[in-house]
């Protein structure tokens, strides 16, 4: 069934709704009556959701009984196996190439910067999650199968389908450099074969950063005050070394705290 693009679209459509995903997972253990399913989802829309799942070939309906079809069972099994594979290594992954830079347009939030669309081949679907620890500021979304990577002001989104989008770059050359950097980091990891250890995540708060700064507003860093400096630190537009006061012995412990905090930004 998945070989047919039209049927694949129906399956994708069916699975893009969280209620239908809930029904499919509920059916994983076996037969269920429509009454039982009606207890976990809104009864008024149950018939509609079951019809979508049936049209996609994921379930079979017999009077009041609902079960996963053979395809639905394999689909669910395939998803689980794929998830299990995702946490192992890069043995199935092939080195990537940046196929083409498709579009260069001004950014929306800052029209002096550019956003660029590109494509990478082969697509990284399945191993994208493993790449997250390779980038200090990155976030993987399982539902969207996308990895968002931030480096300074530049934000890159890599999709499992192979699409890559970079925004906040100064010019096309910078975008190409960024794409090359991305390619070399990913290919290096694929060549090693081993997946990097998952990265510990911590959310750093602007106020917390400010709390550990000297709060003298001396201006030696070139900023209006310590709060402005904290904002720039959060945006990675400055480094901690710019604050010369922190190098003095009385601020030693605050500097240590800040070094730890800024490593999580």
């Amino acid at each position: 069934m998945s070989e047919n693009p039209n049927e694949t679209k129906l399956v994708n459509f069916a699975m893009a709704n969280s209620i239908r995903r809930k029904i499919i997972n509920f059916l994983a253990d076996g037969y269920r009556s429509t009454g039982e399913i009606g207890e976990i989802v809104e009864k008024a829309t149950l018939g509609f959701h079951l019809k979508i799942l049936k049209d996609a070939g994921l379930i079979e309906l017999e009077e009041e009984t609902v079960k996963l079809s053979e395809y639905g069972t394999n689909f669910l099994k395939g998803k689980k196996e794929k998830n299990a594979e995702e946490i192992t290594d890069f043995s199935q992954a092939k080195p990537i190439e940046i196929a083409r830079v498709k579009q260069v347009l001004p950014c929306i939030a800052d029209s002096s910067k550019l956003r660029v669309s590109a494509n990478m081949t082969p697509p990284l679907s399945g191993v994208l999650k493993l790449l997250e620890p390779l980038f200090p500021r990155s976030n993987y979304s399982d539902r969207k199968d996308s990895l968002i990577i931030q480096k300074g002001e530049i934000i890159t989104t890599v999709y499992g389908s192979g699409k890559v989008s970079i925004r906040m770059v100064e010019n096309e050359d910078e975008a190409k450099e960024e794409l090359e950097r991305l390619k070399s980091i990913i290919n290096e990891a694929i060549a090693k074969g081993e997946a990097p250890a998952p990265r510990e995540k911590a959310k750093v708060d602007l106020i917390e950063i400010y709390k550990y700064l000297p709060q003298t507003n001396c201006g030696k860093c070139g900023e209006q005050g310590c709060y402005s400096f904290a904002i720039k630190l959060m945006a990675r537009q400055v480094t901690l070394e710019r604050c010369t006061l922190l190098k003095e012995p009385e601020y030693a412990s605050k500097q240590e705290h800040l070094q730890v905090l800024t490593s999580y930004i």
Partner: peptide, 17 residues
């Protein structure tokens, strides 16, 4: 648009949700 290819970043939701 039932059988059209949709952008993968979207989430479909019912009226109530």
């Amino acid at each position: 648009l039932f059988d059209k290819t949709l952008i993968e970043t979207i989430e479909l939701v019912d009226e109530e949700d």
